[in-house]
């Protein structure tokens, strides 16, 4: 049988040159969407195959953290504005835990996938993206728990809950933006492995998880709002608890701008360095 002729004129040739960015970057990313799904699915399946408690891990950590904040918040008399303390704390822990888990998974993702990166081509953005998607699944599991908790206290959200996906998106953008920076930097400078836990721990204290943003004095508010997670957490409380937490439009605008900036610069830095990942990883 003669070999079937290959029509080499059909697709435009792929040209690889020094410093030449791929023209079809985003189309390539779309073509590899199955890989994104499989990597996310692999991480979830493997985690649940390897652990005894399985799904419960997604819950246990926020639950224990909530218990600590509830007990100490109660002892210190941190005001809750009439919301049951567990609900107030968990409504904030939900986005914060998502952000911190997503950021740390995202940051380590490239280094942990060094075997893939040095052996196969695919758009590298898939790796941090899939790390975040895994955290998003954990977030959804926790969200179900929060729903149960609110049901238990007889609290039903009103129309404001429609804004919740937008706040989730904001948290996603913050985590991805910062995560892209960190994961690309970590390929080159392993020090960031040490910096990250510090950032996250610091973030737990300066974000309104255990307390309420109303406690922050007026003159510090702008500085306080530089942390984009402040608006996300306030927004979660606002949309879940019938506006018991007031909205701060200036803070929200700042957070959104910061998130966009992080995401844009993170993507740009990632794309600039991604072609040398295989050489330094």
């Amino acid at each position: 049988m003669p070999p079937p002729p290959i029509d080499t004129t059909e697709a435009p040739p792929l040209i690889l040159e020094a410093g030449r960015a791929s023209r079809n970057y985003w189309r390539d990313l779309w073509r590899y969407r199955d890989l994104l799904a499989f990597l996310t699915w692999r991480d979830l399946v493997v985690r649940y195959k390897q652990t005894m408690v399985g799904v419960a891990w997604a819950l246990l950590q926020p639950l224990l953290t909530m218990a600590v904040f509830v007990v100490f918040g109660g002892l210190l008399g941190v005001p809750t504005d009439g919301v049951p303390r567990p609900v107030m704390v968990f409504a904030a822990l939900l986005p914060w835990q998502f952000f911190s888990a997503a950021l740390s998974a995202c940051s380590g993702s490239l280094v942990n996938s060094s075997n893939l990166i040095s052996k196969v081509y695919f758009p590298r953005l898939i790796v941090p993206l899939s790390a975040i998607l895994v955290s998003l699944v954990d977030f959804l599991v926790s969200a179900v728990f929060l729903a149960a908790l609110m049901l238990w206290y007889g609290l039903a959200p009103d129309w404001r809950i429609l804004a919740l996906p937008l706040y989730t998106l904001l948290a996603f953008a913050c985590a991805l933006g910062a995560g892209l920076w960190l994961t690309a930097l970590m390929v080159r400078y392993r020090d960031f492995r040490i910096v990250l836990p510090f950032i996250l721990q610091f973030g737990t204290y300066v974000s309104p998880v255990a307390f309420n943003s109303n406690l922050v004095p007026e003159k510090w508010f702008l500085l306080y709002s530089l942390n984009p997670m402040v608006s996300v957490i306030d927004g979660f409380r606002w949309s879940l608890l019938r506006g018991s937490q007031s909205l701060n439009p200036v803070g929200l605008a700042m957070s959104t701008a910061l998130a966009v900036l992080l995401l844009w610069s993170g993507t740009a830095y990632f794309r600039k360095t991604e072609r040398s990942f295989a050489d330094v990883i």
């Binding site: 792929l14 040209i15 690889l16 990166i117 081509y121 040398s276």
Partner: peptide
């Protein structure tokens, strides 16, 4: 997997 430092590949 890695970029050339010089020259060109056409596929």
């Amino acid at each position: 997997i890695t970029d050339p430092s010089a020259g060109r590949i056409t596929l």
